[in-house]
Design a protein around this nucleic acid. Structure first.
Length: 518
RNA sequence: GGCCCGUUCGUCUAGCGGUCCAGGACGCCGCCCUUUCACGGCGGAAACACGGGUUCGAUUCCCGUACGGGUCACCA
């Protein structure tokens, strides 16, 4: 049960029902995912329902695979619809607007009957011409509104019989909303407070297209009403059309939902909102999971394939435009649900910061248990077909996790633990490999040979014993020792590395290094 | 251009009239730990767009300016 005294001071008490309603014109970008996430968090926070609806009223922009992508991307994020596409369907369907086509006509007629809408015969070409003329004349935007509609070809200007005749003759027409003149439309947005627009600045938007499909505006109001949506949480790009929606609710005489317009995700570089076209241009993905258009073959990379875990990915998105009011930054989905509060969503747009995003993933990775890390490492190894000793995986993964951001780093940073170095880092070699290095390593190898139980502590004892006996500093032997075994100049403790490698491998690598490096 | 929305460190943000010469996080820099790298610890540089009000007192409230964003399709 959700109790709020929010909108217009009206007390409402009903089950929260929110919806995410993307149009299947391509992959969902991270801004869209965030919108879905906020809707989901809000619903779950209040014990309500989250619905997924597909707004495909524009048949010309349909992209195959897009709907499936949306479902898969949300599922990866842990966002599962309670109802609608990809969820359990409970009586309010269908949930694709194209499949609801026949249902909208009734509502258009209802509006027509009470003179809240009218039929217009003007063609797109005619309107474009008018708009272009206005533009050329330096005038402000030409609008189909209370002033101009008197000069257009519509049911307001044409005799009834002519309208009827045209329709019967099969003339194509649209239905437009009939906005009253000089009416102040006001509504309270949960995030922005009172928003007010005068109808003189709005135009008579098309509600019903010539192809018999409703426009987004009509479909969205009808569906939200029929589906019992209580809160409309969507991007700020919808704010300018919200007054139109308010007018539609009034025209129908329906109670309207509470509106909350989210701030946009902005490009980290230049101006503007983050868009799908940004693809990989900025050096990071803008999509949750990989996308490939089955028709054009275009592809774009996703966070999932990059190595992001769902939890930190969602965590990062949640904090872009919202904060819990405390200093906590790391959350899992459940934690987000508990902490989420629409009133703490900020008003201004947020530039996306990939570096911070990586930090969330790193935090998550580091908090994984040894066995969980081992699983990740195993996956990376299997993917490359490398062989390994299962018993050492946990230890290695934990060791490498300190310098990893993504699971694949577990292997990338410690590949030498599985295959001998093919080359030796040139810089380290020049700086650390001296004339006496080979001899020292051979001495060490001889001592290692005698260690019965080849463990980290025993290896360290042998190594330090050698140092003490020869009165050598760690820096004299350590780096060349590391170079010989790993081919690199930096990394985790050599003693741990030796134990994991095993005595035979250590001895053989020393021998090989002595031979190659001299 | 019209309309609408916004404006605190480079970035994400805390702040809802006095506790703010503004707090946290990412990134950056320095120091410590350490054979090295990383992790970790400590410290540092870094912001209230500007101008008017209102008030005993404004980062916080109001107005204007500037700047930024969104939107102006038979697209969503």
């Amino acid at each position: 049960m959700y109790i709020c005294t929010n909108s217009n001071d009206r007390i409402m008490s009903s089950n929260v029902r929110v919806r995410f309603a993307p149009s299947p014109t391509g992959p969902l970008h991270i801004g869209g995912v965030r919108t879905a996430l906020y809707n989901y968090l809000f619903a779950k926070k209040h014990g309500g329902d989250f619905l997924l609806r597909i707004e495909d009223t524009d048949q010309t922009r349909f992209v195959p695979g897009a709907e499936q992508y949306i479902i898969e991307a949300l599922a990866w994020c842990g966002i599962s619809p309670d109802e609608g596409i990809g969820g359990e369907t409970i009586g309010n369907g269908p949930y694709r607007q194209s499949e609801r086509k026949s249902l909208y006509r009734k509502y258009v007629d209802q509006l027509l009957a009470v003179d809240k809408a009218y039929i217009a015969f003007d063609t797109s070409e005619e309107l474009n011409t008018l708009r272009q003329m206005a533009k050329d004349a330096g005038a402000t935007n030409w609008q189909y509104n209370y002033i101009t509609r008197g000069n257009m070809k519509n049911s307001l200007t044409l005799p009834k019989e002519e309208v009827k005749a045209k329709i019967e003759a099969g003339a194509s027409y649209v239905v437009r909303i009939k906005l009253p003149r000089d009416h102040e439309v006001r509504f309270e947005d949960t995030i922005r407070g009172w928003v007010s627009v005068n109808t003189n600045n709005m135009d008579d938007k098309v509600l019903y297209k010539a192809d018999g499909m409703p426009t987004y505006h009509l479909a969205n109001i009808v569906d939200d009403h029929l589906m019992g949506i209580t809160h409309v949480i969507r991007g700020e790009e919808w704010l300018p059309s919200a007054p139109l929606h308010v007018m539609l609710y009034e025209a129908f005489g329906w109670e309207r939902p509470v509106f909350a317009h989210l701030p946009l995700l902005l490009k980290p570089d230049g101006p503007g909102k983050l868009s799908k076209r940004d693809g990989d241009r900025l050096g990071f993905p803008v999509f949750p999971i990989n996308w490939s258009n089955p028709e054009t073959g275009e592809t774009a990379s996703g966070y999932r394939e990059l190595g992001f875990f769902p939890s930190p990915f969602v965590n990062m998105l949640a904090l872009l435009g919202w904060n819990p009011g405390t200093e906590q930054e790391v959350f899992n989905l459940q934690g987000l649900i508990e902490a989420f509060d629409l009133s703490k969503v900020s008003k201004s747009g947020a530039k996306f910061d990939f570096e911070k995003g990586k930090w969330f993933n790193q935090q998550y990775l580091r908090a994984l248990s040894e066995s969980e890390l081992a699983v990740e490492l195993k996956k990376a190894l299997d993917k490359e077909g490398l062989s390994y000793n299962e018993a050492h995986l946990g230890k290695i993964a934990t060791m490498m996790s300190e310098r990893a951001t993504f699971p694949q780093d577990l292997l990338a940073e410690g590949r030498y633990l599985f295959i001998p170095p093919a080359t030796y880092d040139e810089k380290t070699r020049n700086k650390r490999w001296g004339k006496d290095s080979a001899g020292m390593l051979q001495d060490l190898a001889a001592r290692f040979e005698t260690i019965p139980d080849f463990t980290e502590t025993n290896i360290e004892a042998a190594f330090k014993g050698y140092l003490a006996e020869k009165e050598l500093g760690f820096g004299k032997v350590g780096p060349s020792f590391r170079l010989a075994l790993t081919g690199r100049g930096l990394g985790p403790s050599m003693f741990t590395i030796c134990e994991v490698l095993g005595k035979q491998e250590v001895l053989s690598r020393i021998a090989k290094a002595v031979e190659i490096l001299g």
